[in-house]
Write a protein that binds this DNA or RNA. Sequence first.
DNA 1: TTGTAAGCGTTATCAC
DNA 2: GTGATAACGCTTACAA
Lengths: 352, 352
Amino acid sequence: MDEHEHNAASRDAGGRAAGRKPARGVTMETVGRLAGVSQVTVSRALSDPSKVSPKTLAKIHEAIEMTGFVPNALAGALASSKSKLISALVPSIRNFVYAGMVQAFSAVMRDNGYQIMLSETGFEPEEEEKLIAAHLSRRPDAMMLTGIHHSAQARRMLLGADIPVVEVWDITDSPIDVCVGFSHADTGRAVAEFAHANGYRQAGCVAAGDERARRRARAFSERFKALGGEGVAIAQFDAPASLERGRQGLAQLMDAQGFSGGVVFCSSDLLAHGVLVEARERGLQVPGQLAVIGFGDQDFSAFVTPAITTVRVNMEAFGQSAARAVLERIEAQRGDQSVIDLGFEIVRRESA
Amino acid sequence: MDEHEHNAASRDAGGRAAGRKPARGVTMETVGRLAGVSQVTVSRALSDPSKVSPKTLAKIHEAIEMTGFVPNALAGALASSKSKLISALVPSIRNFVYAGMVQAFSAVMRDNGYQIMLSETGFEPEEEEKLIAAHLSRRPDAMMLTGIHHSAQARRMLLGADIPVVEVWDITDSPIDVCVGFSHADTGRAVAEFAHANGYRQAGCVAAGDERARRRARAFSERFKALGGEGVAIAQFDAPASLERGRQGLAQLMDAQGFSGGVVFCSSDLLAHGVLVEARERGLQVPGQLAVIGFGDQDFSAFVTPAITTVRVNMEAFGQSAARAVLERIEAQRGDQSVIDLGFEIVRRESA
DNA sequence: TTGTAAGCGTTATCAC
DNA sequence: GTGATAACGCTTACAA
C-alpha cells in the first residue's frame, strides 16, 4: 500500500474574524418599535397571527424582514416552560442501527416542531448519568434513552424531571415511563431454534458490541445446548463491530477453540460479512461447511454473495414508534401503553 | 427468503403515565432557603465555588443533594448570553463520513463543556435554510455546517447571528467564517492521474451522493480525458449510496454504456464494494480486467477481497479541526486561519 | 385588536 | 463572603 499525500496545507485568508460587532441583538421590542406596536403584539403575531389585524401583521413582518429578527427561543422556553427540545442519548451514532433509529425519531420530531439534542453515551453507564444531568439542565420536553439499564441516580433525576422518557432498543416490564424495542434474549433463542431446525448441531458465536449483543449470544448458546446441540464456542470482542473483527472472530473460533464447522451466529451483519470473507479465504463452502447468521439486516446484507441470513429489526419503526409515544405523552399528558414490543424476524437468505 | 415473525405485540402496563405532578420545579431559591443562604450564593457556589466559604458550600451541596436540584441552563443562557450549545448540520448521519465527523466534533466539544444540537439537512438547500433559522433561535454559541453552498438568506442570518461558523467537508476561498475540508475537484483529478499512471486507458464512474460526489466524478472524467484516456462512462444515482447501487452501477456501465473493462472510480467505498461483488458475479478478474477505486476508506475496505484501493480523508481530523477552530473563535473572539485544507491521500490496495 | 404588568430562573453589578 | 437588585427576551394573564 503506497500513499500519495495531497494538499495537506492551510492558508490564512483573514476572514471576518477580526471585527465581530458588540451589537445588541434585535428583539421583539426592536421589531415592535419599528412597526409602531408593542412588544407583545409582535409576540402574538408570531405565535397566533389570527389574533392580530392584517394591517399590523404586515407591518410587523416588514419590520422582521428589515431587521433580520430571529426570536430568542431560550427566553420563550423560560417563560412558557416548553422548550420544544427533545434529548436523545445513544451509545454511538456510527452504529448503523442507532443512526437509523435516531434519524427516524428526529424526522418525526422535527415534523412536529421539535428539535433534537443528541449525545453519544459510549458504553459506560457513568457517562450516561453525566449526560442525562447535562441534558436535563436544558429542560427538554422529553428524553429518549437507549436501553433499559440506567444508574439509580439517573432514574431518580429522570423521574424528578417529570417529563416523558422513552427507552428504546430493548424492553422490560418496568420501564421508567415507556419502552419501545424487542427482546434480545428471545432473538438469540429464536436463532438457536432456527439453526437447530435446519440441521446444524455445531455452533459458534462472534459477538462485538454492547451488553445486548452478549445477551443475544448467551441466549442463543443456552437454547442451542438445550436443544441437544454441542457446546457453543464464543469469540467475543469489545465494541465496535467491524468486518475485520468478523474475520478475526472466525479465525479465533477455528484456530483457538476447535470449531471446525457448523453455524456461526454473529452479533451484527458486519461481523457476519467478515466471517464470510474469512471463510472464502480459507476455502470453506457456505452454507455447506459453514453457515452464517447475522443480525441487523444491513443494507448490504442481501447483496453480498452469499447473501446473509440475518435477524431483521425495524430500526425506523423503533424511532417512529418512540417519537409517537413521546408526542402522545407530551400532548395528552399520558400514554396508552408502556411496553411496546416491535419484535423481530429471521430473514433466510443464502448463508444459512 | 422465508420470514419468521416474532413477538410483534404490545402490552399495556399502566406505567406512571397517569399522575404527572404539577410540581413547581426546584430552583436556586429553593436550595438557598434550605441551606439558609440567598439564591445568588447558590449561583456562585456552582459557578465559582472559591467565592463561597467552605461551610456554606457544604450546606448548599447538601441541599442540592436533598432536593435533586438541576440548574436551569435556559435561564442561565438567557442571563449570560452564553448558551454552551453548538449547532451542527449534516446532510445525513447515516452516511459514515458525516457520522465520523460529527462524532469527532462532538467529542471535542463535549470535553470543553459544550453540547451539540444536531440536525440532518437532507440534500435540499431550502431545508438547510429553515434549519439554520430554527437553530439560531436557540442562540447557539457557534454553528457547524456541511459544505460551502448555502442560500443567500442563510448566509445573511449566519452573519447576523454574529457567532463563529465553520463549514466542513469542502473548501472555498470565501468561507462565511472558517472552513475545514479538502478539494473535491483535486481529488477527482488526482485519481485520474493515478489511474492513467497505472496504465488504464478506459474508465467509468459510479456516483451516488450529493453534489460533491458529482464534482469528484466530473473532475476525474475531465482529467482522464485530458491525459489521453477515452471518454468516461458515468452511472449516476441519487443519494444515498449502497452496495446494491454499486452492483447496478457496474451493470449499467457494461450493459447500457458499452464499458467493457478498465478502471471504475466510485464515489464511495460502499459503491466500490458493490462493483466488486458484481464483477465477481460476472466472472471478471480484478484488477486484471476491471480495476476499482473507491472513496472514503471505510473500515471494511482493507478487509474485503480484493482489498479496495481508495481515497482516504481523515473525517476525525475534520471534526477535531473544526471543533478547535470554533473553540478558538469563541474564546479568543478571533481565529488564525480561515481556510484549513486537510487534504486527502490515495491508498493503493489490491483492486487497482 | 392591542397594551400593561408580572413573572420565568438565572447571571452581572454593586453594595455591605 | 454574602446579599439586593436589575437585567436577559420572552409568554401569560388581565385590562382597556
